[in-house]
Design a protein around this nucleic acid. Sequence first.
DNA 1: ATGATTATTAAAGTTAACTTTAAGGTAATT
DNA 2: AATTACCTTAAAGTTAACTTTAATAATCAT
Lengths: 128, 128
Amino acid sequence: MSYHIKEITELTGLSASTLRFYEKAGVIPFVKRDINGNRIYDEENIQWMDFILALRETGMPINDIKNYVDLYKEGHSTLKERKEMMLQHKAKVEEEVAQIFKYLDKINYKLALYNILEANMNEQDIII
Amino acid sequence: MSYHIKEITELTGLSASTLRFYEKAGVIPFVKRDINGNRIYDEENIQWMDFILALRETGMPINDIKNYVDLYKEGHSTLKERKEMMLQHKAKVEEEVAQIFKYLDKINYKLALYNILEANMNEQDIII
DNA sequence: ATGATTATTAAAGTTAACTTTAAGGTAATT
DNA sequence: AATTACCTTAAAGTTAACTTTAATAATCAT
């Protein structure tokens, strides 16, 4: 199965210009063209995008993703390097999530205060 | 206790220019000045910053934080509105964290593949 | 065969969140 | 008295990640 850019925008939620931008930035490799020069995406492209989006959505900069893709293009000799990149990225994301939980605690504390304030205000309504 | 900007950079990890930028953007309210016009931060400022950083580090845009601070300045009549903001932000952050976990699954899957590939390569080393 | 839809490119524009620069003021140290 | 270490402002510059624009081309439906 092969798809034109419009179908990929619907599938990924990315705009056509973003898809072109990513391809030019070296993030989406091996996109073929039809006779008119229009992009044609196959299953392999879609699988790549699925994974690349996981990297982007977890905060990996596009230039780092490009570096990862470049290593992939070089072949199996770069396997260890790519694995190392993934391990480091995973560790970074997990650290960030741990931080977010700490910050969520502060937000929850604030919400608890709001609830107490609200309760007190209701009491006054009754007393006065 | 009161502090100059240098001490606050050490305390928060934010640069002096970022602190000035935040203040100008309406994110850090009620910062006083000494006789020479230099900023003086007190405990209340520091507590605010601590909370404001929780909002920023969980992805709230600076302009939204400014709106929140503006509501706070308006007084207790905006309590419900502020609570609503916090509830929505909390929900958004929790949704984002849930997404990140899904993406981490994909990264872990990739890592599992790398481990299998590595194991197979070692086997070949032994056989050949 | 004409208008709508879809695609292409290169280049310029946008936005958020800062950072840097330039020009200057004050205060303590040597 | 001069150097050092702070601080101030306004304005310009930076970076990442896109988006928009402009000019052009192919294909499809009426």
